[in-house]
Design a protein around this nucleic acid. Structure first.
Lengths: 346, 346
DNA sequence: AATAGTTTTGCAAATGTTTTCATTTTTGGC
DNA sequence: GCCAAAAATGAAAACATTTGCAAAACTATT
């Protein structure tokens, strides 16, 4: 073939094909209103004919934005984040951004590496989950000056802009609900709080509320389970198989609660008759499970959408400085919690 | 603040700080073995001190690969794809790639737009879900010559490399299982097959198997539900509330099956005693539900991992040409299916 | 038909990196 | 110490685009 054959057409090829200069082609993309309609049409046709697609990399080199936002999450394949990621992605898309995503499996050192990787790609902005990050991570963000938003957690003394809810409050509310129902024998199933401030905060919120009522949770009623139905079912099978067993179980999130629910069902323990189960999160489907899951609602969709808008605004200069948005939590009393059986007829 | 203040340090700044030439700095990244250890150390220190992060955009301009792979999915927030996306992402990460992701909500025209968007970012490779795409999409891929893999579906006459399973076979197997158990009154709950070849193929596989046994599914036993527990529960509540009702329901996937299961539970219909429920997919947690879900296993994790490897190999030139990989399906007989009650004691 | 605007277009520099080729420095054998 | 060979480094071109500035092409006014 001639000179071009394997490689993609560039703006020069388009210019030649349209019989105009490179600058004119460039302008037809960036400031079309400056062109004579006839010229614009010529260029459009050439673009069409050649199958030209603009090269963002070259634009970035000019100080243009890359049009990408990096999202770093612990895991993707987890009901917890799926809704959030979707709404975040949709929000970005609306603003013309593309999402680069990386996961670190709850390993904060890997998180740091992922951040660097995304920065090499010159993302215009970044989103992380939670506010617990390695010092290196925080320093990197500050040093590089990449607009960043922390999702899912709220703190008024956060080092980053954040959009989320108070997880300690979520834990507290969940505990409160069980206490209000009259439960005193309460078990806890939570994920490993290391490197996971959401879990940590929820657990401590719950524990502090229980402590206020002078309730102690025996060591063997405090279980750890990863964010998986299988894991939580396995863990709680042993807890529920023993005697005495708690009259209620407070779970670190709805997935764990689902596992506990199935464990109870497997053991023939009636929910909520003999055992109340409380979740946190209100994941998709939590209201449809039978019995439907009582839980603390954290509005993932709205959080994701707002986070997208915030980071986009920060990038485009529509806003500056750090902001902290706290979403109110609400308690959803459904069918998995009830008055403990011993008190049923008081 | 001398000359540089707001902008990120570049390779020139590093070179100056380290007292070497630009080329040497570049080499220290790309061919460190060519440098004298002392020089390398000087550069490393300068990089450290300045907080320099390489600029991929500039590398891309040099004909280097961008190190990104684009993934276009119908939705992210769906258990269906979550596992797949995670393993795909992990696989890419291992090979040093970063994932750009975009979702189109089962709209093939939007899919095309997303593809273009990703191509502007000069992704090295692309992954799509399924083999049904608009003609424009196929042409774009061929014209641009971006290595592409279709995930989740298999066909030996596919226009793209593919890694997946035969969805029609999955439908067939699911139907076969119910037939083998003795069911004749079978309901179907599937998602809208438009723009969704996975659903389409499964449905038709199932229908053809039923036809082989001369079984007709009444119109009112064929329901449509989106991939959501809520939707499928709602839809099947009406189906199951009527009389006569089927003795078994075959579902387009495990999420839908879950919805049907909860509907049955709500109505006090025993599963599998009075109603068998068959899923497709074997999603995370399907085995832990009570009763555990009989389903057709599609190995999402392995498919995602292999797809990642394939696309990485195609990009790095380790392989060429199109390939088609078919994963075998297996049937998982668990507790949600049984002999229909009328035949219980034959 | 010439002038003064105004609109449209082109030229060339700049962006951050890699790489080829040339040059300088180092090494080791004598 | 000297020389050839080997190792390490540097200079400059190339990549695809944007944009400030200048030139050219129109328009309307006289």
């Amino acid at each position: 073939m001639t000179k071009k054959q394997k490689d993609k057409p560039d703006i020069v090829a388009v210019a030649k094909a349209a019989g105009v200069s490179i600058s004119t082609v460039s302008r037809s993309f960036n400031h079309p209103e400056l062109l004579k309609p006839a010229t614009r049409k010529k260029i459009d046709r050439a673009v069409q004919r050649l199958g030209y697609i603009r090269n963002r990399a070259a634009q970035v080199m000019h100080g243009r934005r890359s049009g990408t936002i990096g999202l770093v999450v612990p895991t993707i394949d987890n009901a917890i984040f799926a809704e959030l990621i979707q709404s975040f992605s949709d929000g970005l898309d609306q603003q013309g951004f593309t999402m680069l995503i990386a996961s670190h499996g709850f390993d904060l050192d890997r998180e740091y590496k992922m951040l660097r990787k995304l920065m090499e790609h010159r993302v215009d902005g970044l989103a992380l989950i939670g506010l617990e990050h390695s010092e290196a991570t925080y320093q990197l963000i500050e040093q590089q000056g990449v607009p960043t938003v922390a999702i899912w957690n709220y703190s008024d003394e956060a080092r980053l802009s954040c959009v989320g809810a108070q997880n300690s409050e979520a834990g507290r509310l969940a505990a409160r609900h069980l206490l209000d129902l009259g439960h005193r024998d309460i078990g806890l199933v939570f994920p490993d709080p290391v490197g996971n401030d959401r879990a940590h905060d929820r657990l401590h919120g719950a524990l502090s509320e229980l402590r206020r009522e002078k309730i102690k949770v025996p060591e063997e009623w405090q279980l750890q389970a990863s964010y998986s139905i299988a894991d939580s079912k396995r863990a709680s099978l042993s807890l529920l198989g023993r005697s005495p067993r708690p009259s209620a179980i407070l779970c670190g999130n709805d997935i764990i609660a689902q596992g506990v629910l199935y464990a109870a069902k497997r053991l023939g323990i009636a929910v909520p008759g003999e055992l109340s189960i409380m979740g946190i999160g209100d994941f998709k489907g939590s209201g449809e499970i039978e019995p439907s899951l009582s839980t603390i609602r954290i509005p993932a969709k709205r959080i994701g959408a707002l986070a997208a808008k915030q980071i986009a605004d920060a990038v485009t200069g529509k806003s500056a400085g750090t902001t902290a948005t706290n979403y109110e939590l609400s308690i959803l009393i459904r069918d998995s919690t009830a008055t403990p059986s011993g008190m049923a007829n008081t």
